[in-house]
Design a protein around this nucleic acid. Structure first.
Lengths: 227, 227
DNA sequence: CGACGAGTTGACGAAACTCAAGAGTCGTGG
DNA sequence: CCACGACTCTTGAGTTTCGTCAACTCGTCG
């Protein structure tokens, strides 16, 4: 694994602030594996062999309901990990994973982590922290979904993408709009209309490129201060 | 703490299958504290001093949005715990907690758990398992919320309450309907109408008492096999 | 060039929210 | 003991939002 990839790994909660040597040791000689868009990493109910860490691209987690409709549960990008708990506990995955774009994902052997874990309880804390963070994200998502209208959810998504930028912002949608719509709990049509409505707040969209006149305005929309 | 209470504690994921002596040791000499309905355990953003385990009654976790509306994130009953990760990591709570009914809650000192944790890494696994279960519940909630119409969500809630009972079932709502509505992501009005609609599937409601003619019918509704 | 998929837009309908009124319960205090 | 108010829940009416169906545009790729 090259240095650039390893740098991404170190952005993850589990490896951040961890002793360099120990981090390398846990990763072992594994290299990220490349997945084509649409390729399945594992299915819902599969036993997960290791914990997954996205090095590049995006991976979606989804659940299939009985009637065939699938719900997007989360989407993970570079530096984000998933399936830690399932892997460590040897539990079946409660969601399926599929590459949403071309992606490279590092699979870390659960047994290896488990061995280090008993040796160094600090790692256990990190795993807990990681799980806790996932939980927090889900809670926030749940909150948004329960209470906010579509336009505000979209505004929120854009704000998140923009990070802490200020003033005029140019950015790209990281994956297909259809998928974003699913993540935000709406249909592609609603997403499209929502984006159209945001035009009056200085948001321009052309294909996957988005230009925002004033990100602060959008933050106000997301907060609900603006219609 | 008396034996009945301790039995409830042992139903929790963290303490189930744990060595009896160790379990008692972790709990220490703490006793459950009684909370009146509406009493606040901690606020969103508070530093949580210990992990909380509901012995009796119900505790709601909620998040307040900027505009004062609060969203119910989860509701925990006897044997369920919350705030584990936050307490252990010393992180601020990402939701507020308030007694939804009269409740008794055991607060377990985080430092004490931490100490046992370094001694016995198995405890770390349990905590992870616990966190993972929370996550799974949230994911399921998210899924339901995204894809299911109100009536099905209500049916699902009743089915969950009924457990694995068969045939005719009599039960009580564990807390106010308004709160249930919030948990299911709808207004009290919608909840009321939804319940009314379930009458044609053999559900009778009188105050907090619910009588279900055939729980199997309701399961079918929840699955979507029945309108 | 033609087929295909993604995205947009319009028309329509159903579901859920808001506002408002009213019934029933419970606790409190006169 | 009863009257009052507070609160919860229900029901009704009107409105909004969102999903569905369908047509059409526009790239992409074979």
């Amino acid at each position: 694994m090259d240095a650039a990839d390893f740098a991404v790994v170190r952005r993850n909660m589990l490896f951040r602030d961890l002793d360099e040597a120990l981090a390398r040791d846990i990763v072992g000689d594994r290299s990220p594996r490349a997945y084509a868009k649409g390729q399945v990493l594992f299915l819902q109910g599969d036993r997960v062999d290791g914990l997954h860490l996205v090095v590049s691209g995006w991976v979606k987690l989804y659940r299939a309901t009985e009637d065939g409709v699938d719900t997007v549960v989360a989407i993970h990008g570079p530096g984000q990990s998933f399936g830690e708990a399932a892997a460590l506990l040897g539990a079946p995955a409660h969601a399926g994973a599929e590459a949403a774009t071309e992606a490279r994902v590092l699979t870390i052997d659960a047994e290896r982590v488990r061995a280090r874990l008993t040796a160094d309880p600090d790692i256990a804390f990190r795993m807990l922290a990681s799980a806790s963070m996932h939980l927090r994200v889900m809670v926030e998502e749940l909150e948004r979904l329960k209470s906010l209208p579509a336009t505000r959810r979209i505004a929120g998504f854009l704000v998140e993408l923009a990070g802490d930028a200020r003033g005029a912002v140019e950015l790209e949608f990281p994956y297909e709009k259809t998928l974003i719509a699913g993540r935000l709990g709406m249909t592609p049509e609603s997403f499209s209309r929502g984006l159209a409505k945001l035009r009056e707040h200085g948001v321009g969209v052309e294909r996957e490129r988005v230009s925002i006149d004033r990100i602060e305005t959008l933050r106000a929309v997301a907060r609900g201060d603006l219609a």
